[in-house]
Design a protein around this nucleic acid. Structure first.
Lengths: 197, 197
DNA sequence: CTCCCTACTTACCAAATGGTAAGACGTCAA
DNA sequence: TTGACGTCTTACCATTTGGTAAGTAGGGAG
């Protein structure tokens, strides 16, 4: 039961932090949502900062697990790149909390202790950049060029990943559903044209 | 002097809201930074929410002014698209506050009164989507496909626009400076390959 | 039965939050 | 001179914040 409570706290905290940001959520709000007092929460996690850290840590662990499990096979760098990025897009759709929270980290880690928000990005970026660099088009390009191309594709994915509420608000659910359904193949087209020689 | 104080408050508020988010900034923090009391600030703006609204409103006005001034000329839709998006990229580089604040709005407007965060997006998106749709490649495409392509390019730009602190933190200022300097032409390449037939 | 540990509660606390009330100070028009 | 106005200050206020202290309930080990 202990582990269950911890997990429920982490689940709720992840969702609320993703929705409202670190300062937009009080530990009391997290606790009452699962019928606990904030002191029970503090008993488990010590402080709000530590709870937030645990949320990020859990996301990080899931991320790395997912990364090692979904190593794209095949030796064509283009296909591997497409597979990796489409997988990322799928994750953003299935677990929108994660990209919301990571986007907030991207915005906040100037102020916060600059280390916590970048654990996941560096190895991930490096892998992706290598795939792009292995592509025929970028074979002779500089590292900076391959990196920029990678980051542009990542931006296309992640920006869309945090846009659902806004786009639904502007265009309605019907239109958004169509966009979201089409997005993966549109994305694949962009990736292929970006690395096409 | 009155207008000057108002402007100074708005400038500071814009910067701090962009840096730390709505809940991360207190009106006292904004006021003390220009040697005022928070009551003087409240005298000018009534409430924190109203101040935030005024900050967004001013950004909106600048945005529309900029939009009407920088109407890309020429009748080639590809060139107009390239010009518009490169202009946006330049703005993100020159005034990083703006894209930071707008990205926070994108994350927050699920919770906030859904209207305030979308004033700028709809007409802007429509203009860009029309340019993409006018492109040879998207002439026969559906509206959804043109929209998705537009949004992907926008994502590539805006995601990079909020990444400076993180990328500098990971790779250092030297590397980031090179990436940033190269980014416009890399972006132009991506746009052209995205709408190339 | 007792001891101890984990899980959780009630009762606090100091600090900070957004906001109100009332007044001081200067300026400017009548 | 007077009265009104805009600008800003000091003095408050209720509420919420993250966090501490102390104690209760229950289960398992000796």
């Amino acid at each position: 039961m202990a582990e269950d409570t911890r997990t429920r706290i982490l689940d709720t905290a992840e969702r609320l932090f993703a929705d409202r940001g670190f300062y937009g959520v009080s530990i009391a709000a997290i606790a009452t949502e699962i019928d606990l007092t904030k002191q029970a929460l503090l008993h488990h996690f010590g402080s709000k900062e530590k709870l937030y850290g645990e949320v990020l840590k859990r996301i990080s662990q899931r991320f790395e697990l997912d990364l090692s499990k979904a190593q794209p096979s095949g030796d064509d760098p283009v296909e591997r790149l497409v597979a990796s990025l489409l997988h990322l897009q799928t994750r953003n759709t299935d677990q929108p909390n994660v990209i919301h929270l990571l986007m907030r980290e991207l915005l906040d880690n100037k102020r916060r202790a600059d280390t916590v928000g970048t654990w996941y990005l560096e190895p991930f970026l490096e892998r992706l950049t290598c795939m792009v660099a292995a592509t025929p088009k970028y074979n002779d390009a500089t590292l900076e060029e391959a990196f920029a191309a990678t980051y542009q594709l990542l931006g296309a994915i992640n920006y869309f990943g945090v846009s659902q509420p806004t786009l639904t608000g502007i265009y309605g659910e019907r239109f958004y559903a169509k966009i979201e359904a089409d997005f993966p193949q549109q994305l694949e087209a962009l990736i292929r044209s970006a690395v096409a020689p």
